[in-house]
């Protein structure tokens, strides 16, 4: 499973998301995933099963065929965990 975390530049927010999601999925005992941080511009045309991005990037992701996960508070592990696990389960189901 390929999870893309997005932000404007690929240095801050997308990295924060990657670190937190990695923690969450490891705690769940998952191993068959790859998390790749991207900046919005470079991501266009890349393949991902799940795309995770800040809430106000929604309008940039309309064309994506991936499952989209939008996060309000990017340091809230509870919110991130809930939303990413729901997306992962929808992939597996």
């Amino acid at each position: 499973m390929i999870i893309a975390t997005l932000c404007g530049m690929g240095f801050g927010t997308s990295m924060l998301l990657k670190l937190t999601i990695d923690d969450v999925l490891k705690e769940e005992g998952m191993t068959n995933y790859q998390i790749i941080p991207w900046d919005l511009g470079s991501f266009k045309g890349q393949r991902a099963d799940i795309v995770v991005a800040p809430m106000d990037m929604e309008s940039h992701l309309k064309d994506s065929s991936a499952t989209i996960v939008l996060i309000k508070n990017l340091v809230d592990k509870v919110e991130i965990k809930e939303k990413i696990l729901a997306a992962v389960n929808s992939q597996e189901g």
């Binding site: 404007g8 530049m9 240095f11 801050g12 340091v75």
Partner: peptide, 15 residues
């Protein structure tokens, strides 16, 4: 790119 660098309530991480 918009104000997405406001990453949590009341907190911005500009860079």
């Amino acid at each position: 790119l918009g104000p997405y660098s406001v990453i949590a309530p009341g907190i911005a991480m500009p860079h």
